[in-house]
Amino acid sequence: MTAMRVGVLGLQGGVAEHLAMLRPIEGVVAGSFMRVSELERLDAVILPGGESTAMGKLLAEFGLLEPLAARIAGGLPVWGTCAGLILLAKDISNDQRHHLAVMDITVDRNAYGRQLHSFIGAELIAGLPGGPFPLVFIRAPRITRLGPGVQALAKVAGEPVACRQVNMVATAFHPELSGDDRFHRWFVELARTAQTGIASRKP
């Protein structure tokens, strides 16, 4: 089995926490990236939590917006947590700005309120064995619309907090802060399946 190269966008935010979750997973080579030349070598990408306005601005400055959006459109497995989810979303409520705009969802930024309203819960996640998964919400965005091709993976109070559209996964919460690596392992498996799929389609 060839190593799976997973890159965590390293512009700002909870980068080290994702890397610490990924590095013990067998067959994974994990590192941070912020240049187009580094993106080209990756098999899967994680967009970490942080401040979406700061990250979105830096994505544009580093010339990463279009190359990253193009690779995702071409099937690159990607997972956005919190601010990363906002970067992926096609629409952001009450905001003209959008960033990668590749995933057919609408999000409301910081909809769960200010830091006083950050909270920790636990819910079952579709496809994730082993019982309820700890959900850490920090000034979290709310997913207010799922497009027709988007599947909810987990809900809190009836609203989606994790979703998937083919190669794209988004979570409003932070598995990298939960001390539970099941979500990271699940994403790596998803990426591995995608990699095999892409490889088998090659002539």
Binding site: Q12, G13, G14, G49, G50, E51, A54, S118, V136, L177
Partner: peptide, 10 residues
């Protein structure tokens, strides 16, 4: 403590 982690590198 986690909120501060999201500010790192900023």
């Amino acid at each position: 403590r986690d909120l501060a982690k999201m500010l790192k590198g900023g």
